[in-house]
Amino acid sequence: MAMRALFWLVLLFVAAVVIALFGHFDAGHVLIIDDPYRIDVSLNFAIVAIVVAFIVIYVLTRTVRNLWRMPDRVAAYRTRARAAKAHASLRDALANLYAGRFSRAEKAARDAGAFDENQPPAAMIGALAAHRMHEYARRDAWLEQIEDKEWQDARLMASADMRADARDSEGALNALAELEAQGVRRLNAQQIALRAHQQLKHWPEVLKLVKLLEKREAIHPAVALRLRQLSAENLLRDRRHDPVALLACWDSLPLTERQTPRIADLAADLLLQLDRPREARKIVEDALAQQWDARLLRRYADCGGGEALPLIQRAEAWQAEHPDDADLKFTLGRLCLQQQLWGKAQAFLEQALALAGDNDTLKIRAHRALARLHEELGHAGEASTHYRASALAIKLT
């Protein structure tokens, strides 16, 4: 600013010097005749008069034009003021929303929406604030205010997300269906759909969506594993009254699920309840071939179906790889009990007790099995001893 003022001051002095120098050469005159009037002035005066007249006319013209445009300028100023206030309200609404002051955020969003350009984002903020306060009718009213075509994808996605969060699963899926009808397929939409289908217990859809999200690495592996297992378990339980449907469902499951001990144990249990021991036995044997598991070993002892000898032979073959497995010894003892091989049953059960270590649950079961064995043999004293030992092994907390 100082340099600019200095420049104009120097320029003014230069102009004054130039005018003073040329003012000495006043050799000309300007003569204006309008009969009967005659005006005779020097050339310098005429030049100065023309310049002054130009400046006066210019100033008057600018003044008149500014006065004429004053209403438009006032209107433009008011519009700018409203826009500035609306933008400030939009910033306040966003800050209050993430600060957890939802009532203030909704009020600020209402103020921000007074400016047309801010209406869609303000409505989104207001809808989310109302949703956080569980005011779902107000939330929907906010969303209905969004009419801009460029904001429809955002409106539908936000609606689906908030409805799924409020456990309005049908509403969430309807919003996603409308979004998909417009040709929009996004990762976030699949994540919202997974939550909605899980709430509705649409287990086939849950399985399909988990696979898609796993391929895109959009879900944690532990969460994906749990959801796959949960889906498989519920699909099997839904068919627990029909052995044909149950087996068909089992065959349709991915191999990774069928090899999971928890799911294999459930499938075998459901088949045993439907008096299908052969199929249950095959499921347990296939799962044990992939992953050795004590739960499956205990289930294997129930798969004899009145003929335990083949199971005993298979279990004895497993001893080569697992010679000191207490659960395997217990399973062999139970199978021998079913086959009435009393001596072998007692030997296996006593070996299971010796190898049980800190496994109190296995100790209780082994003592009870030995007690039943001695009851069958008529040894009341030994049976009482084992019943007492099983009771003492129970830890009360």
Rank of each mutant, 00 (worst) to 15 (best):
A2R: 14
A2T: 14
M3F: 14
A5S: 02
L12R: 00
F13K: 06
V14F: 15
V14Y: 03
A16Q: 04
A20R: 13
V30A: 08
I32Q: 05
D35E: 12
D40Q: 11
S42I: 00
N44W: 11
A46P: 05
I47E: 03
A49T: 15
V56I: 13
I57Q: 06
R65W: 08
N66K: 13
W68V: 12
R69W: 06
V74G: 04
A75N: 14
A76N: 15
A86V: 11
A86F: 07
G100W: 02
G100D: 12
E106L: 09
A123Q: 10
G126Y: 02
G126S: 11
A130P: 03
A141L: 04
L143T: 01
Q145G: 07
E147I: 09
Q152V: 02
D153K: 06
S159V: 04
D161K: 09
D161A: 13
A172N: 07
L176P: 03
A177W: 03
Q182F: 05
N188D: 09
I192D: 02
A193Q: 06
L194W: 08
P204S: 03
L207C: 06
L209P: 02
V210M: 13
K211A: 15
I219V: 04
P221D: 04
A222S: 09
R226S: 12
R228K: 12
Q229F: 06
N234Q: 14
L236T: 00
R239T: 02
R239E: 13
D242E: 14
D242R: 06
L247S: 14
C249R: 10
W250Q: 05
L253N: 08
P254T: 07
E257A: 13
Q259P: 01
A267G: 05
L274A: 03
R281Y: 03
I283L: 02
W292N: 00
W292G: 07
R298P: 00
D302N: 06
G304H: 15
G304T: 08
G305R: 04
R314A: 15
E321H: 12
P323L: 08
D325H: 09
A326E: 06
K329Y: 02
C336S: 07
G343P: 01
K344I: 00
A345K: 03
A347R: 05
G357L: 09
D360I: 09
T361R: 12
R365H: 11
L373Y: 01
A383S: 14
A391I: 04
I394T: 15
K395N: 13
